[in-house]
């Protein structure tokens, strides 16, 4: 039986992933910091006071968790989709494919890269938020768990996008036409209780609703959806996408001929 350390290849991928996005921090970390600052200025400080309170919280406090979540989602996704597609495009993905690395280690490496970027950008945006308001923290474990699972889900999503992408256009289509609308409609800026009943029912199919609400629960102790329900949904998304990704990588879809 051939055995080798799985930790060395795993950490090699993670270090490579993290140094990739930190090296190009102007493209990866600065933009969310700036755009989220703008959200806080415009929706929090300028418009927020006119809106008043939402579910008993100042509007800026109500949207802060959603805005942090939005940056976690975007960045976890962006990290894996661009890195994995870049590796396919420049063909250095072959460096991993020829090596004796089990597929799940490659997958774990890329997910971890996405998690690290999600956490890092989430932290930066949280620090930005602290300039505008005093953030609440209802439950630290819940916030961390939600950020972790959300990063995993969207890293996996980014990976699937990259696996099927054939050209650069393909890696911006999904974020623009699917991810962004889902985020905006996922209760970042409003409580779904405000929606007409029909749209409330439709919103239930939006995975981001669960993440934003679970995270808001972690920070404010308030959520449109029961926290247990939200976690069950998160676990289902994570496991489903994990299985899909492992299958795709095992078959070599999009990466082998």
């Amino acid at each position: 039986m051939y055995t080798q350390s799985l930790f060395i290849p795993f950490s090699t991928i993670v270090i490579k992933e993290v140094s990739r996005f930190t090296r190009i921090w102007v493209q990866t970390i600065l933009p969310p910091a700036i755009s989220m600052t703008l959200y806080f200025v415009i929706f929090g400080s300028l418009i927020g006071p006119r809106i008043g309170t939402m579910n008993g919280f100042d509007y800026i406090d109500y949207i802060a968790p959603g805005i942090i979540m939005m940056s976690v989602i975007n960045n976890a996704y962006a990290n894996v989709v661009s890195s994995f597609f870049g590796a396919k495009f420049q063909r250095h993905i072959e460096e991993m494919l020829v090596a004796p690395i089990p597929v799940f280690v490659i997958l774990a490496g890329y997910i971890t890269g996405g998690i690290v970027r999600g956490f890092l950008v989430g932290t930066v945006v949280t620090i930005v938020a602290l300039f505008f308001t005093d953030l609440h923290l209802y439950s630290f474990p819940i916030t961390i768990a939600v950020v972790l699972m959300t990063s995993i889900v969207f890293s996996l999503g980014g990976l699937i996008n990259a696996i099927f992408a054939k050209k650069f256009d393909d890696i911006s289509i999904i974020p623009t036409f699917v991810l962004t609308p889902l985020i905006y409609l996922g209760g970042v800026f409003y409580s779904i209780d405000m929606l007409p009943e029909f749209w409330q029912k439709v919103s239930v199919f939006n995975p981001i609703l669960y993440m934003v609400n679970a995270f808001r629960y972690g920070m404010l102790g308030e959520s449109d959806i029961s926290i247990t329900h939200a976690f069950i949904m998160l676990i289902i998304f994570t496991i489903t996408l994990l299985i899909v990704c492992l299958q795709l990588l095992n078959k070599g879809i999009g990466i082998k001929t």
């Binding site: 460096e95 090596a99 004796p100």
Partner: peptide, 11 residues
């Protein structure tokens, strides 16, 4: 490039 490849092989 060379060191990373080593890492992939568990070196």
């Amino acid at each position: 490039i060379v060191l990373n490849q080593g890492g992939y092989y568990g070196i």
